[in-house]
Simulated scan of single mutants.
Amino acid sequence: MNQTTNTVHQDVEYWLKNIVVGLGLCPFASLPLKENTIRITAFLGTDTEELLGFLEQELTTIEKSDTSQIETTLVAVPNCLHDFYEYNLYFDSIDRLIKINQWEGVFQVASFHPDYQFSGTEPSDRENLTNRSPYPMFHLLREDSLEAALKHFPNPEDIPERNIQCMEKLPEKQVNELFYYLFNKR
Rank of each mutant, 00 (worst) to 15 (best):
L51N: 08
G120W: 04
T121M: 12
D92A: 14
E35A: 13
L16I: 09
T67G: 00
Q69P: 00
T37M: 09
L146P: 11
T5M: 02
A76W: 04
Q165I: 00
D47L: 08
W103E: 08
Q102T: 07
Q165Y: 02
Y116K: 14
L146R: 10
H113M: 13
F84L: 07
N176M: 12
F179R: 15
R142W: 09
F138D: 01
I98M: 09
K185H: 14
A42I: 15
Q108R: 10
L150A: 07
S68P: 00
H113V: 14
I40M: 02
N184F: 14
S68Q: 12
T121F: 13
L170Q: 06
N163H: 03
V20L: 02
V77Q: 04
E122K: 15
L52C: 14
E58Y: 00
S133R: 06
L33N: 07
Q117F: 07
D158H: 02
E71D: 15
G53N: 15
L140S: 04
T130Q: 09
E143C: 05
D66E: 11
Y85T: 15
F153G: 02
Q117D: 06
W103T: 11
G45V: 04
H82G: 12
L51S: 08
R126P: 10
D47H: 14
G24Y: 01
D83S: 08
S93R: 15
L170F: 07
S111Q: 13
L55Q: 04
I40R: 05
E63S: 03
D144P: 14
T41I: 09
N184R: 15
G24M: 00
I100G: 03
I38M: 03
Y181M: 09
E63Y: 06
L55P: 00
A42S: 14
E86K: 15
Q3E: 06
E50P: 04
R162D: 00
T37S: 13
G22D: 03
Q3H: 11
A110F: 12
